[in-house]
Amino acid sequence: MAPPQPTPGPSQVAADFTAYYLQRATHEFAEDLDRVRAAADFKHDALAVLVHALQQGTALFAPAEQRRIVTATAAKGRQAVSG
């Protein structure tokens, strides 16, 4: 039997959720992002600004909600193991 997976700590949950959020956002707005990158004012720190802008939406999700979403993966993994 596989050992139980440790519960991720708050900072790990936040990091995982931010990564997931960015992945979703870049997937959903791929076309728009390409167009922004081609815009005339896209220079210097614009990339950092863009990433910051996308990921600040994580603030909409309370820590418990974030945990609920990112741990859904872990649960599927366990299910596969036990099933």
Partner: peptide, 18 residues
């Protein structure tokens, strides 16, 4: 307007509202 400036401004306003 789909530009880096608008997005930057939107991000700043988001932070202000938060």
């Amino acid at each position: 307007k789909l530009s880096a400036t608008w997005i930057g401004y939107a991000a700043f306003l988001f932070n202000t509202v938060t």
